[in-house]
Amino acid sequence: MVKNSHDSYGYVSKSLHWLMALMVVALFSVGAYMVTLDYYSPWYKTLPFYHKSTGVVVAALLLLRVLWRLANLQPQPLPTHTRWEKALARVAHALIYVLLCGIVVSGYLISTADGRAISVFDWFSIPAAGELFLDQARIAGAIHEYLAYGLMTLVGVHALGALKHHFIDKDKTLKRML
């Protein structure tokens, strides 16, 4: 099935979910590592370039995903899910979307603070909006970092929840995303 049903996710939702999961975890790992690099490291220029390029692709996928979600059915929680599980899942999912948006925007603001465009894999460029507020690169940088750590915490909660449903509750919560 391409589309979602009341019961399960369709291929589009599944593909977007796992592709973005992979890219976001990779972006976080690369991001955390690249800021520790020495100036003379051969990766000093390449890792930020790939980080930014991939980030733009994730932003595009995020937009697609939100549109797809709005245009589609959402699988309903299983009848066996407790009220607190439903509430927690709902809050975590919403926050993951909010943080992803925040990370995309703050990342854009770091790199474009001086009017420079963001090159995406040397394929095309995202134009800059210039410096929108004072000390933009530093402030946006701090926000980008905090949001990224917050997102990874949420992703951890999200993954633990999925594993709990699969191995402890033995229900099909995880399976319908596979």
Binding site: I110, S111, T112, A113, D114, R116, Q136, A137, R138, G141
Partner: peptide
């Protein structure tokens, strides 16, 4: 230094 990302790093 006329490069926001570098300024951020230097600060």
């Amino acid at each position: 230094s006329n490069h926001a990302e570098r300024d951020k790093h230097l600060m």
